[in-house]
């Protein structure tokens, strides 16, 4: 049975990704900070499927422990999907050093350290695939969420470099940019239906993207073009826009 390690397994998106892989017959290793939130998620999937499921504690900000965590896994994964992230309060993040540090630590540094550990093993084995949830917010810094956006921009650049390094070694790296997602963070917001993906749609896009070895996945296709346009607005105009 092939195994997927899902990092940050308690989010709506991660749960949908886990269910999708279980339904397709993959064994799961679910990693998250809060075991109390993770256990019911694992037992739910155990009833839904017959695949092997392990849970492990994982803290994205505990960088020094990432190597130990990976070494301690009973089953080494064939695929790693990093879903963790932290979207703080941007107004707070403008001036609150703790909030800036946390946003960057979870969204960038934690990703970079953990995926470096994974990459080393996959490179040695000469196989494997890594997917990480980045964001369209990283495509261009905008006043509404540039701290989060810049951490995600860093992640996107990191993944692009990692992909470049590992492509020759038989290891695939995929960047996922979901756009608007219908999750607990957005349930009370009015979002345009055509641009808003459900966790299940994102899970399908991630699973299918990995099967087809896609490099960069926008879970809903209009986003690719929206961001293309946003990236190409000249800076002297862009800086005056409200975005």
């Amino acid at each position: 049975m092939k195994n997927v390690l899902i990092l940050g397994a308690t989010s709506d998106m991660a749960r949908a990704i886990a269910k999708k892989h279980a339904a397709e017959g993959w064994g799961l290793t679910l990693a998250a900070r809060d075991p109390e939130a993770l256990d019911p998620i694992a037992s739910d999937i155990r009833i839904r499927s017959t695949v092997d499921i392990q849970t492990v504690p994982f803290d994205a900000k505990d960088f020094a422990n990432h190597q130990n965590l990976y070494d301690s896994l009973d089953v080494k994964p064939d695929v790693v999907i990093a879903c963790f992230g932290y979207m703080g309060d941007q107004d707070q993040a403008r001036s609150d050093l703790g909030e800036i540090e946390r946003t960057i630590a979870v969204n960038f540094t934690g990703m970079a350290t953990m995926l470096s550990v994974v990459a080393a093993d996959f490179e040695r084995r000469g196989s494997g695939a890594i997917a990480a949830i980045s964001s369209v917010a990283g495509d261009r810094g905008r006043q509404s969420n540039y701290v989060y956006g810049s951490a995600k921009a860093g992640l996107t650049a990191y993944l692009s470099g990692l992909r470049n390094r590992l492509a020759k070694k038989g290891v695939h790296v995929m960047t996922v940019k979901p756009g608007f997602a219908r999750t607990k963070m957005t349930e009370n917001l009015e979002l345009p239906a055509a641009l808003t993906a459900s966790p299940e749609q994102i899970a399908d896009a991630v699973f299918n993207g990995l099967e087809k070895k896609k490099n960069v996945v926008y879970t809903l296709w209009p986003w690719r073009y929206i961001m293309l346009i946003i990236r190409h607005i000249p800076e002297f105009i862009f800086k005056k826009m409200k975005m």
């Binding site: 019911p40 037992s43 739910d44 009833i47 839904r48 607990k184």
Partner: peptide, 9 residues
Amino acid sequence: RRFNKFLSF
């Protein structure tokens, strides 16, 4: 909708 786990079978 988010409260949607299977508990036993």
